[in-house]
Design a protein around this nucleic acid. Sequence first.
DNA 1: GTTGACCTTCCCATGACAGGAAGGTTTAGA
DNA 2: TCTAAACCTTCCTGTCATGGGAAGGTCAAC
Lengths: 139, 139
Amino acid sequence: MNIGKASLATGVSAKMIRYYETVGLIRPSERTESNYRDFSERDLNDLRFIRRARSLGFSVEEIGRLLSLWRDRNRPSREVKAMAEKHVADLDARIKEMQAMADALRDLSHCCAGDDRPDCPILSDLAGSPAAASQGDTP
Amino acid sequence: MNIGKASLATGVSAKMIRYYETVGLIRPSERTESNYRDFSERDLNDLRFIRRARSLGFSVEEIGRLLSLWRDRNRPSREVKAMAEKHVADLDARIKEMQAMADALRDLSHCCAGDDRPDCPILSDLAGSPAAASQGDTP
DNA sequence: GTTGACCTTCCCATGACAGGAAGGTTTAGA
DNA sequence: TCTAAACCTTCCTGTCATGGGAAGGTCAAC
């Protein structure tokens, strides 16, 4: 199966398949006589695994470790769980940060008239004004 | 005020100050005889504005527009509010995505024993297994 | 046999940083 | 006054996952 078919079959773009190969995430596939990549069912399974893991936000490096664990039939599930929990913690931290940004901006937005006048609490806040001043008002 | 002092005074690293200059976010500052950058109070205000906007997640490009609006004393606050609302929407979308990832992973993690045994619903899920199979079990 | 749709490798760009090298300047202390 | 440390300057590189595109080889259908 060539790279186009493999891409269709797994939902991983051809570009990305080649990239995963160069960074060592997947083993180089077989090649046809004419040097086309030739993917086995096993290769496709790896690609699907990668796609799913990416969709859960794992980095390529983390997926490398997950793939090793997947291939190791003597893995302790403890290790997988630890990785998952750490990733969840990372996600939660980033979510919290973004939530704080969104909340702060929502507050400011809510206080902004949003009309033709220049007075704007959003800009005032960005300008670090303690009150409702803005550079245009007090240059 | 040289770049080191400006960095301390604004919380923007010297590296970033130079970067913002090269990408045109800030105007090139004055220079001393010996070619050192020399920042005015106004420059510092711009840098503080940028730092605050970055902390709210605005991109450098968006901050460029915000700075223009800030400097334009005839701006309609409508434009600022629109930018803020769009940004909030972007944040919310990304938060939702990450929330979905975290929730999915939490579910899987919760079902994983996390001990010495190899059986692992997390890997099973990544492998796209409909049931609790894993590659190690069914190669 | 031609055409079009593939494939190959290689290079470049993204965004917002950080690190570092090579070389000039300022400043503090001996 | 000299020197060493702590600055500053520009320029180049790498990050991470991804897309775009050029130049050239291959396959498939008609």
